[in-house]
Design a protein around this nucleic acid. Structure first.
Lengths: 245, 245
DNA sequence: TATTATTGTAACATATTGATACAATGAAAA
DNA sequence: TTTTCATTGTATCAATATGTTACAATAATA
């Protein structure tokens, strides 16, 4: 049982946290040509939710987001970006939470701090699927990858949050070099293209894609060549952050 | 004295508002080839600040932003978009507020709710300069337009907020049709181009700009022609929201 | 009526992206 | 070992988009 758990259970008033404010993290991964999202599962409730957390009184909001990300994935120095703050009053829906807490044997009073209205700051993260160690938080039973194309019913407005995160990812992909954050350190041009195709949900022209990517001067060919198919071996690449002018 | 004033002064505990949460609005205008921002002035303090406000307990955050915008400009149905939530703990700086309140003859206790830490949700708005009626709020002396190129010293991180709003505006300008929100209903191609040039801070090619804008099929030529110069009269345009397929 | 500055657009040059083609080649099959 | 096969890397050309120059049209002014 991790320390987060005790804090949440004991801290009946939510003391130490900024009141009414939460963080939700849409953690994207990529594996076997599928975009994936990390979700928490609450056994025997049928509920699924985004990993999230609260902000300590003397902590930057961005810091808190990093902390949440680290606890769910074991990763630091990850691409993480705030994309929207969800503040509709219609978000406020206590029933799922009551059910979840009930399933854990904890019946909260109606004025329990977790049952109040929360404004939630949404972050999205791009992680290397192979490096993640998904870990549930105190009130969830597991933390697993789900295909974006086959999501379960999500708590509250979490489906909407994911959808907005995906919109932002697609826009950002067009004018920032962020896709490689979803790949292992070393990858082929084919890997990169199918990543882009999966995110954008459309076929790209192979020759043009390769030409474009190489023209940006941020890919470095690695000596070693990939092997494993009955055909010419593709080059292996890694990203170099600084463009050489 | 508007009703907002009484609420803020009387409401010593900040009751009725979501705690620790605020809204800051970067309201852009365009006049005489200058981008402008609405700022509140606090006489005898040297402080300037973005218009802002708080969120009622049973109000959507976006609603609150519209309310703030309406109170400062008298305008409804305005382009307004959330762009970032500012949550660094270093934002917390009570001195300016104490000075401002002091200049108004109000010495707050150290635990006054306005002196606590706030997370602020940033919105930017694009308004028709000619239609705005700037109105100060309860604790400010005036609300005026300032040139973006010649801003006074701003309170707290408000300079940073404006700068991030401008970054967002520039990005959005490239892939959304939002510029016209800063112009009167009817304008010339020259007006539109100099607006774009001012926002992007670079010269654009006249022929290419015109071709591009016309090719998007969202400009409608208005019968009446502009007059006022010793040269061929330019067409007048207005935006039509629906593209005709 | 001539002058002048600016507009609308054509025409061409250059750059970017789309589409097709093909030689290179690494593994598996023959 | 040789042949077959699928896929890669890149060249080539086509289509589109953007940068550049040029010029006729024209509304106010002189």
């Amino acid at each position: 049982m991790d320390s987060e758990f005790k804090k949440q259970e004991l801290n009946v008033t939510g003391e130490g946290y900024l009141p009414g404010l939460a963080i939700d993290a849409v953690i994207f991964g990529f594996h076997e040509n599928e975009l994936k999202v990390l979700l928490l599962t609450y056994k025997n409730t049928g509920f699924f939710a985004l990993p999230g957390g609260f902000i300590y009184e003397n902590e930057d909001v961005n810091e808190a987001a990093r902390r949440v990300l680290f606890h769910r994935t074991g990763l630091k120095d990850i691409f993480l970006e705030q994309f929207y703050t969800f503040g509709d009053k219609s978000r406020h829906d206590v029933e799922p939470l009551k059910t979840i807490m009930g399933a854990r044997g904890f019946i909260p009073k109606d004025d329990h701090w977790l049952l109040g209205r929360f404004v939630s700051i949404g972050y999205y993260a791009l992680v290397d699927f192979t490096k993640v160690n998904p870990a549930p938080d105190s009130i969830s039973d597991s933390c697993d990858w789900f295909n974006l194309t086959d999501l379960p019913n999500l708590m509250q407005d979490h489906g909407n949050i994911i959808s907005k995160a995906l919109d932002t990812l697609r826009l950002d992909l067009d004018h920032k070099l962020i896709g490689f954050n979803l790949l292992p350190e070393i990858f082929t041009m084919g890997d990169l293209q199918s990543l882009y195709e999966t995110i954008l949900n459309k076929k790209l022209i192979r020759a043009a894609f390769q030409r474009k990517m190489l023209s940006m001067g941020v890919l470095e060919r690695v000596a070693k060549k990939w092997t494993g198919g009955a055909h010419k071996a593709p080059y292996l690449y890694k990203f170099v952050s600084e463009k050489k002018a």
